[in-house]
Design a protein around this nucleic acid. Structure first.
Length: 889
RNA sequence: AGGGUCUUAGCUCAGUUGGUAGAGCGCCACCCUUACAAGGUGGAUGUCGUCGGUUCGACCCCGGCAGGCCCUACCA
């Protein structure tokens, strides 16, 4: 079997993925004896292409799903895509525009057909990209938010809520996007700081007896003013209350009213009231029964209510109004003013508050139980801190504007007769519910995309039919998503789940951070700092990308994506690959046919390194298990990384080389057996994070099951007997050997002894046990530290030698390397002095602590005894170093 | 304005019940040693933002301050 010395992911990944899929390994069963584990994929927009945010979100889910699948669960990861009303409609409109057409030219039906054909052609792109990342979704269950059964669910929910009175139609002030010509929900508005002006405008009293000055950032809206408000306690304006003002430019008569809402401190303390174009003015208007004048057309231009300003765009009107006021000397002052302005999160245009007829979901009764399930802990957030944010939002939740003036989406199932009576129905009604008229027209509007998304956990499982899928997999175990859509989506799923399934949609919400660039800025296409995950996969491999994301993610925190780290983990994949190359070479002539992953060997046949590595992989498994169980992904990857690289590769593979290349066949067979078992286990451990390379290697090993992806996930509970071959005692003993080797290497390095030079070393053990351990591992020390003559004897002549004391628990040994003729002693004196200094510093703070009576009195006994013992050790070590330093000078 | 969160090695970040700190990358030196130069061995590096409190002892707990980020709500 030929293996290149560089791991080439591009060759491996697509082949492996196709094989997994054709083998149906991603499939979940509606009926199974296995315990269920389910999660639903937050459906990406069909227009989307995979960005790093998806990559992070999906990798977390895939890690959980693969881990659970390997842990024996009937695992469902339910994929889907979202029709994304505005986004998709915009894409197709742009395409039409290039052809010189508009959606209006085509008409509704033809346009919707056009969108569908666009969706058929390009809508699968993101799914293909998800496969590149390795997402192990149950693709047979893929759902699109406009699929027939989802539409059925949407209609049923709409009708039920309508019948309960929880969906209503009303004329209210809503956020309007002039460029989309559609209503938006509160959540779809982003507030951005904008530098503008505060204009001070004089409003004259009708009777000519005086004037009042207001301050506004939007002078053009005065055209729709219907009052000026002052604070009732503001003495400056007390005499104005109840009198009439002449509205500048239009000369309409408007009253001065008193309202608590007005801040006396801001501006002039007098507020122009435009109830139809400002949210707080709207409230004032309602309180005082003011006329509401709408001065805007749907496209954001001014209408006939604006008189001669009709037809202008808002910003043009503002300019002209200011000029005209100036000409009439009614503009008294213009001062720079920075304030927050709402922008459409989709188109970026400035949002206009607009009075219009829309459909709303009344949220108070839905929010109440949705709050309770989080308060009671039925649903928990990870990290927990999001609980507070969620509850706060549920406290201040407003009714949800769900109608959108678009053509692409779930059309509102409401029908009107000529008289304007409303019939709401799941199917096409034949007659008006009020007047019986057969002439019915369906509402032109569609529903907010999030309306259908909110039903996702059960609409994807066949609801409203009672399906086996729901019985088995609802509620889902966990929902993984970013904090940007907690309110858009998570909250609404909880409300809908409780209302329609009478149960929570998931038990756990894992909230991850957002991806930022190396400078900490939000990644976005427009700023050009977005890394394309597909390019990263091409260059570094999907495994490396996944591993990087998992290593970088820290509990709920945003993460700064680091390409350097990606490179590092690409190197790690290569390391794993090459370790396998070595191992496969080491299996030459090895008969693995009778070996199982859990086959236990006679412990007499095992070398210390064999027992050590088994012990270490057991520890690693425990760490990974604990980390994954509590969603600490970076800890899990770190445990695997450090085991594979620093324990398996750095030490174990080096330890066994003399055995593998040696002649002792019994010893060799034992080591080969352990090696193949450890590697098999290690790639299974690695699999959720790096599925491709682990599967590829798994298949190359002489012992294996059908596929890594469906093999058992190693934990300390699996193959207990096998893990027990790894003894902690032996592990500690071998740690002494490793320390000795490091000490010799350090002496070599610091004294600049060339790697080619074989040195003589004397090990002076301080006790019988150390003597025995070192004796037993003599060959390892010789080969790993490049020692020629190695003596182990309690008494040694330390004259003109480098000396390093080594301790490991109760074990103690002095490493002595005679330097005569090898090097200049000056370097060694320097080295020893450095060590002494270090130890003395430690001793200093330790003895200070131990001489504190209060410490001795109050600290726990074991801390004190440990400190005392440590101090003795330090003293001994320093003494021996001082002695050898003396002998050199 | 209110709330949240963060400030640890040059960079990015770990640090799970308080016992003076770790990783990766980067850096320095030496090495193409028969798995891997995307590698090996060794090495250097931190008054843990600041001030104060609790404690025998604080990166960790409490409070003030400074700075960064995020969210919510806004004064027109």
């Amino acid at each position: 079997m030929e293996m290149s010395d560089r791991y080439d992911p591009s060759e491996v990944e697509q082949r492996i993925y196709a094989w997994w899929q054709s083998s149906n390994y991603f499939r979940s069963e509606d009926v199974s004896t296995k315990p269920p584990f389910s999660t639903i994929l937050p459906p990406p927009n069909v227009t989307g292409s995979l960005h790093l945010g998806h990559a992070l979100d999906h990798t977390i889910q895939d890690v959980l799903v693969r881990w659970k699948r390997m842990s024996g669960f009937n695992t469902l990861w339910l994929p889907g895509t979202d029709h994304a009303g505005i986004a998709t409609q915009s894409v197709v409109e742009k395409k039409l525009k290039k052809e010189g057409k508009s959606r209006q030219d085509l008409g509704r039906d033809a346009f919707v057909d056009e969108v569908w054909s666009w969706k058929e052609q390009y809508g699968g792109r993101i799914v293909e990209q998800m496969k590149r990342l390795g997402d192990s979704c149950d693709w047979d269950r893929h759902v699109f938010t406009l699929d027939e059964n989802v539409s059925q669910a949407v209609k049923k929910v709409f009708v039920q809520l309508y019948e309960k009175g929880w969906i209503y139609k009303g004329t209210r002030l809503i956020n309007w996007s002039p460029s989309l010509e559609s209503a938006l929900s509160d959540l779809e508005v982003d507030y951005k700081e904008v530098k503008g002006n505060l204009y001070h405008i004089r409003y004259d009293l009708e009777d000519g007896s005086g004037s009042l000055t207001i301050a506004t950032t939007r002078p053009e809206t005065l055209l729709a003013d219907t009052a000026v408000a002052v604070n009732p306690d503001d003495e400056r304006y007390a005499s104005f209350i109840g009198r009439k003002l002449k509205l500048p430019l239009l000369d309409r008569s408007i009253p001065v009213i008193a309202d608590e809402h007005v801040e006396t401190e801001f501006g002039t303390g007098a507020l122009k009231v435009t109830p139809a174009h400002d949210f707080s003015d709207y409230e004032i208007g309602k309180r005082h029964n003011l006329e509401m004048i709408n001065m805007l057309n749907k496209n954001g231009t001014l209408n006939e209510a604006a008189g001669e300003y009709a037809g202008l765009k808002v910003f043009e009107a503002r300019k002209k109004v200011v000029e005209d006021l100036e000409a009439k000397e009614q503009l008294l002052k213009t001062e720079p003013h920075t304030h927050q302005v709402g922008h459409c999160s989709r188109s970026g245009c400035v949002v206009e508050p607009l009075l219009s007829d829309q459909w709303f979901v009344k949220t108070e009764h839905l929010a109440e139980p949705a709050k309770r399930v989080v308060e009671s802990g039925t649903i928990t957030f990870e990290p927990e801190s999001w609980t507070k944010t969620y509850l706060h939002w549920m406290d201040i939740i407003q009714d949800w504007c769900i109608s959108r003036q678009l053509w692409w989406g779930h059309r509102i199932p409401a029908y009107y007769c000529e008289q304007g009576n409303v019939t709401v129905s799941e199917g096409q009604p034949t007659e008006c519910a009020v007047c019986g008229s057969a002439n019915l027209k369906q509402d032109e509007d569609v529903l907010d995309t999030w309306f259908s998304s909110g039903l996702w956990p059960f609409s994807t499982m066949g609801w409203p039919e009672e399906t086996e899928t729901q019985k088995t997999f609802y509620p889902t175990n966990v929902l993984v998503t970013g904090h940007d859509i907690i309110f858009f989506w998570v909250a609404r799923m909880i409300m809908a789940g409780l209302e329609f399934k009478k149960d929570v949609p998931f038990r756990k919400v894992y909230i991850h951070g957002l991806i930022r660039d190396a400078q900490g800025k939000k990644m976005s296409k427009s700023t050009g700092n977005a890394e394309d995950p597909l390019e990263l996969i091409d260059e570094f491999g999907a495994d490396a990308l996944r591993f990087t994301l998992m290593a970088q993610i820290a509990s709920g925190r945003d993460l700064k994506f680091s390409k350097q780290r990606l490179e590092g983990y690409r190197n790690f994949m290569n390391k794993v690959w090459n370790a396998t190359r070595f191992a496969l070479g080491a299996f030459d002539g090895f008969d693995a046919s009778k070996i199982e992953p859990g086959t236990v060997l006679n412990s007499n046949d095992l070398s210390d390194p064999d027992q050590w590595i088994i012990h270490k992989i057991g520890q690693c498994e425990a760490e990974v298990d604990a980390a994954l169980s509590s969603y600490r992904f970076s800890d899990a990857t770190h445990a695997v990384y450090s085991f594979v690289w620093h324990e398996l590769c750095d030490w174990y593979l080096e330890f066994i080389k003399p055995v593998i290349y040696g002649e002792d066949s019994k010893e060799k067979t034992a080591t080969q057996t352990v090696l193949v078992q450890v590697l098999n286990r290690a790639v299974r451990l690695l699999h959720p994070f790096a599925p491709f390379i682990s599967e590829e290697i798994y298949q190359k090993l002489p012992i294996k099951g059908e596929a890594c992806i469906v093999d058992t996930y190693p934990t300390p509970k699996n193959d207990k007997d096998w893990l027990e071959m790894g003894s902690e005692t032996v592990a500690t003993e071998l740690d002494l050997v490793r320390e000795v080797i490091t000490a010799i290497r350090n002496i070599r390095g610091e004294n600049r002894i060339k790697p080619g030079v074989e040195i003589k070393t004397v090990l002076a053990p301080k006790d019988d046990k150390s003597q025995k351990i070192l004796g037993g591992n003599k060959e390892y020390i010789r080969s790993l530290a490049k020692v020629g003559e190695l003596l182990i004897q309690p008494d040694v002549d330390m004259n003109k030698s480098a000396v390093t004391p080594v301790r490991m628990g109760d074990l103690s040994v002095e490493v002595v390397v005679p330097l005569e003729g090898l090097v200049d002693f000056a370097e060694e004196v320097k080295r020893i002095s450095k060590n002494i200094e270090k130890l003395q510093k430690e001793l200093g703070s330790l003895s200070k602590r131990l001489s504190n009576e209060n410490f001795l009195k109050n600290a726990p006994e074991d801390v004190v005894t440990q400190g005392k013992k440590q101090m003795e050790d330090l003293k001994t070590q320093i003494e021996s170093l001082e002695a050898s330093k003396l002998r050199l000078s």
